[in-house]
Each structure stands twice: as structure tokens, then as C-alpha cells.
Simulated assay, not measured.
Amino acid sequence: MRNTTLLRTPSVMWFLIALSLFTLGTVVMAEMGLVSTSMVKTLGKTLCLCLVAVAMDVVWGYCGILSLGHMAFFGIGGYAVGMWLMYARTEGIVERSLANGALPPTEGEIRDAIATQIFGVVGSSEFPPIWAFAHSLPLQLLAVVLVPGLLALVFGWLAFRSRVTGVYLSILTQAMTLALSLWLFQNDSGLRGNNGLSGLQNIPGFERVPQSTISIVFFVASAVALAVGYVLFARVVSGKMGSAIRAIRDDEARVRFFGYRVEHYKLFVFTLTAVVAGIAGALYYPQAGIVNPAELAPIASIYLAVWVAIGGRGRLYGAVIGAAFVSLLSSWFTGGGAPPVDLGFYTVQWTDWWLVLLGLSFVAVTLFFPQGIGGLFDRFGRGR
């Protein structure tokens, strides 16, 4: 019988078991009232960040492409599903308000009223062309996959066929992210500029369902997405495909000399990870409630690289550990959970010093634990 991915890599099985127990335990405690709704949302968002971190680990840790633009794909997925959420929710509000009129409203009047409600904040009352399919959930879900995938495909094809590598490729991905972020900040971008899309936690058709139930549904969906993504990428990085992309990471020129189409491998990995990042964003932002251009800023992709480095790049579970560890720690420090430290001459407020602490942690891991937290698990396993 042919070995499966689970049999070839026992770490995948152990990860799925741990994720299943964590998901089940969180749901049971949430139903018992031991875990708050806000905490369930935080954990659900953390699972989405773990998924995009795994994608980043595949493209950087395994294939050697330091992409500083994968959070742009993450944000695009959020915008795609957020457009339908805003449209459908506003449509319900408008229809209820116009139903009290003497005459039933026409479709044109309803659409104009929806446009005024959504874009009045930026001084407009018309739908931009980019919102042509916002009324259709299936089409917007398709956009979650297609838009990041096509953007990554075009960008990767232009970059890889020109054999741009190393720091120059990282700068190009960062420039792409910056250009996209600056465009979204403009009011005439069609996506409400700096205001972004808000109220995404209110799911149309489920207004009477409590947020506690909706948060559990999204939490479970995020866990399932992480499990499927983890198994998918474990399959990609194993076998002949995994050997090829690791060889490209270690010595691209030699792999090309052996006759491999390096550009095809890199383009496949870059596009696939972009699609998964878009799906993670589509699950993240309904739990966050808002998406704006700041989420696509280059600094967000730099944070993503830091998570992977701290967790241990080149290890899928390392990316999960790094993203979960830093994300939850960030929520604790910036959310007021960490008490201030009084030094007598100065009081340390962690909301102001968290980024400094994160930067120092990244430097310390780079200097003393270059294999990250995941490397410590590997060392313990070899010792055992």
C-alpha cells in the first residue's frame, strides 16, 4: 500500500490531533461559558494567522523566496468577502426602511440607496465598477481565490522569468504591497479609502443569531481551514516536489543546470501560497469586524516574516508556533493584559513598548536560536 502524507510525516498526524483537541476543548468551554466570545474570536483569528504563516513558511522557508507581500493577498481575501457582507447587510437595512413608503421601491431606488449608505462616507452615491458582483456571495467567494491567485501569477511570472532573486525580489514584493496599500487609501479606489469596510461581524441573514454562536462557527471553520492547508502544504513539501523546491532554495543555479524549470516550481509555490493567504484573510476579517488599507501595509508582511523566523522557518509546525505565540502575546500586551512596570523613574507601558520587545526577540532568536522555537522541539526529539 502506498504511503500517505500522514504516514510519511508523523508530525502532521500529531499536529492534526493537537488541533482537533484544541478546537474541541475551546468549543466545549465556550458552550459552558468558561471562554468569552471575544476570546473565541481572538483564537479564531489566531488560527487564520497560523494558516497564512504556514503559507509564508512554504514560500520562504522551503522555496527560499522571502516575500514581503503575502499579507497583501491576505487583505485582498478580506476585502473580497467584506464587499458582499457590507452589500448584503446594507441591502437588508435599506429594504426595511423603504418598505414603509407609500409605493414599493424599484430595484434602481434600492440600489441607489445602498450605494449612498455605503459610499456616503467618501462623498459618493454610486457603485464603482469593482462592486459589480458584490451582490453575489458565490462570485465574491470565487474572487477570494482568483484575485490573489491571478495577482501572484502575473507578478511571479514577470519576476521569475526575469530571474530576479534574493533581496531584489523581496524589494519588488514589498513595492507591490506598498503600491496596493497606497491605492486603497484613496477615496476613489472604490473601497471607501481609509475607512475600509466595517461591520463585517454582522452576517446577513443571521441577525438573530448571537455573536457567541457565530464566533464558534468561524472558529471551527478557521480550524478546519488550517488543518486542510497544513496537510496540503505537507504534501507539497514532501516527496519529489519538496526535494525540488528545497534544492532551489539551497542552490538555484545548480538546479537550473540539471535541467529543471525553476521558474515553474517557484511560480507554482508563490501562486498556491497566495491563494491560501487569501482564504485565510476571508475567514479572518469577519471575525475582526473591519478591514482597511493599513492591513495591507508592508509592515504587516514584515511581521509575518518575523513570526515564521521566531517559530522556525523550514518547519510547518514552527510557523504555527511562531504565529500563535506572537499573536496571542501581542493581544495580551497591547490589550492591557500585561500590567505596567514601575521602575521608579519611568513606568513601562507595554502598549508602547511591545514592538520594541518583539524586535529584540527577533534579534535574540536570530543570534542564539537560528532555527527558532521549532528547532528546540527538533533538538529535544533527537535527544529522546
Rank of each mutant, 00 (worst) to 15 (best):
M1Q: 05
R2M: 07
T5D: 01
T5V: 15
T9I: 13
P10F: 06
M13Y: 14
L16T: 12
S20V: 12
L21D: 02
F22S: 13
T23A: 14
V27C: 08
V27S: 08
V28H: 01
A30P: 04
T42N: 12
K45E: 13
L47V: 09
V54M: 05
D57E: 05
D57A: 03
D57I: 04
V58E: 02
V58I: 08
V59S: 03
V59C: 00
G61E: 01
C63P: 00
L66R: 00
F73T: 03
F74W: 06
V81A: 15
V81N: 08
W84I: 12
W84K: 07
M86R: 15
R89M: 10
I93R: 03
A102K: 11
F127V: 08
P129K: 00
W131M: 15
L137A: 15
L139P: 02
A143E: 13
V144S: 06
P148S: 12
G156D: 05
L169N: 03
S170V: 02
L172Y: 13
Q174A: 06
M176Q: 02
L180E: 08
N202W: 11
F206I: 14
P210K: 06
P210C: 05
S212W: 01
A234L: 05
V237R: 09
A247V: 07
V255T: 07
V262H: 09
L267T: 08
T271E: 03
A274D: 08
G278T: 04
G278D: 08
G278C: 11
G281D: 02
Y284P: 05
Y284H: 15
A288E: 14
A288T: 10
N292S: 13
P293V: 07
A297E: 11
P298N: 01
G311V: 09
G312D: 09
R315F: 03
V320N: 05
I321T: 13
I321V: 14
F325I: 02
V326F: 02
S331H: 10
G336D: 09
A338D: 11
V341K: 12
Q349S: 06
W353C: 03
L355C: 00
L355F: 14
V356P: 04
F362L: 15
V363T: 13
V365L: 09
Q371N: 11
Q371M: 10
Q371C: 05
G372K: 09
I373Q: 06
I373H: 02
R379H: 08
G381M: 07
R384I: 12
